[in-house]
Amino acid sequence: MKTQEELTEIVRDHFSDMGEAATLYVQVYESSLESLVGGVIFEDGRHYTFVYENEDLVYE
């Protein structure tokens, strides 16, 4: 099982292909040891929320 830090790095790496991230945040109260819930805000103003669970990243 991966730590939240490892899950955060996986998510950060995925979003790095989409541009320069200004902020990546984790909603600790919705996350667990198995999943990471949060969002990313890019330098150009785009904002996505995400759920990373079971090696699957879903974002909108």
Rank of each mutant, 00 (worst) to 15 (best):
A22R: 11
V26I: 12
E53W: 12
L24I: 14
E55R: 09
F50A: 00
H47Q: 04
V40C: 09
R12I: 08
E6F: 07
S16H: 08
T8N: 05
E20T: 13
E30S: 10
E30L: 12
D56Q: 15
H47P: 00
E34I: 08
M18D: 02
L57K: 02
I41R: 03
Y25T: 06
L57F: 08
V37N: 01
E20Y: 13
E5P: 05
S35E: 03
L36T: 03
V37P: 00
E9M: 11
Y52C: 13
V26A: 00
T8R: 08
S31W: 12
S31F: 11
E5A: 11
A22D: 06
I10V: 05
E9I: 11
E6L: 07
E6C: 14
D44I: 12
V28K: 08
L33K: 12
N54P: 03
H47D: 02
M18P: 03
L33G: 09
I10H: 04
Y48A: 00
Q4K: 09
F50C: 08
E9Y: 05
H47E: 06
H47S: 04
S35P: 01
F50L: 01
Q4I: 14
V28E: 08
L57S: 02
K2A: 04
R46N: 02
T8M: 15
I10K: 06
V37F: 07
N54F: 11
G45H: 03
F50H: 00
T23P: 06
E55G: 15
V37T: 09
Y59N: 03
E60Q: 12
M1H: 11
E60R: 08
N54M: 07
V40W: 06
V51Q: 02
Y48W: 06
T3Q: 04
F15Y: 02
F15C: 12
H14Q: 05
A22Y: 15
E60P: 05
G45W: 10
R46C: 11
T3W: 07
L33V: 09
E6S: 05
E20K: 13
E30M: 12
D44P: 02
L24H: 01
M1V: 11
G38E: 02
L7W: 07
Y52D: 00
F42C: 10
L7I: 09
G45S: 03
T23L: 14
I41D: 00
V51H: 08
E30T: 09
H47A: 05
Y48P: 01
L24V: 12
F42W: 03
G39C: 15
D56M: 15
F15W: 05
T8P: 03
R12A: 06
S32E: 11
Q27T: 15
Q27L: 15
T49E: 04
Y59F: 12
S32Q: 08
G39V: 14
Y25F: 05
L24M: 07
I41M: 06
Y48C: 11
F15R: 02
T8V: 14
S35D: 01
E30V: 13
R46A: 04
L7K: 03
Q4F: 13
A22L: 14
E60F: 13
G45E: 02
Y59I: 13
M1T: 11
N54T: 04
T23H: 12
H47G: 03
D13M: 15
V40H: 00
T49W: 12
F15V: 02
T49F: 12
T49S: 06
T23M: 11
K2E: 02
E9L: 10
I41N: 01
D56P: 01
D13I: 14
G19F: 10
V28T: 07
L57I: 09
Q27Y: 15
A21V: 15
H14R: 11
Y25R: 03
T3N: 06
V11P: 03
V26N: 00
E30I: 14
E9T: 10
V37M: 08
E60W: 14
M18Y: 08
F42E: 00
T23A: 08
T8E: 13
Y29T: 03
S35M: 15
L33F: 09
R12Q: 05
T8G: 03
E55I: 08
I41V: 06
T3G: 05
M1L: 11
S31Y: 11
H47F: 08
S31L: 11
A22C: 15
Y59E: 03
V58I: 10
L36N: 01
T49L: 11
V11D: 02
V40Q: 00
S16L: 11
D44E: 01
S16Q: 09
E20L: 12
E9P: 02
G19D: 04
E53C: 13
E34D: 07
F42A: 00
G39R: 11
K2N: 04
S16E: 05
N54V: 08
S32H: 09
R12E: 03
T3A: 03
M1R: 13
T8H: 05
T23C: 15
S32F: 09
Y52A: 01
D44W: 13
D13Y: 11
V51F: 07
L57P: 04
Q27M: 13
E6T: 06
V28D: 06
V58P: 02
R46F: 09
A21Q: 10
E9K: 14
V28S: 11
E53Q: 12
R46S: 07
E20D: 10
E34T: 09
V26F: 07
Y48H: 00
G39T: 12
F42N: 01
V11G: 02
T49V: 11
V40S: 00
V58N: 06
A22N: 09
T8L: 15
I10P: 02
F50V: 01
G39S: 10
F42V: 00
G19K: 04
V11Q: 02
L33P: 11
Y29N: 02
G38P: 00
L36C: 08
Y29M: 05
F50Y: 02
Q4D: 04
S35Q: 12
V37Y: 07
T3P: 03
A21C: 15
Y25E: 05
V26D: 02
A21P: 13
S35L: 15
E43Y: 08
E5V: 08
L36P: 00
A22H: 12
E6Q: 10
Y52R: 00
L24K: 01
G19Y: 08
Q27E: 14
D44N: 04
T49P: 01
G45R: 01
F50T: 00
I10L: 09
S31A: 13
Y48L: 06
L33T: 14
S16I: 09
L36D: 00
V40N: 00
R12W: 12
K2W: 07
T8F: 10
R12P: 03
L36K: 00
E53V: 12
V11S: 04
H14G: 06
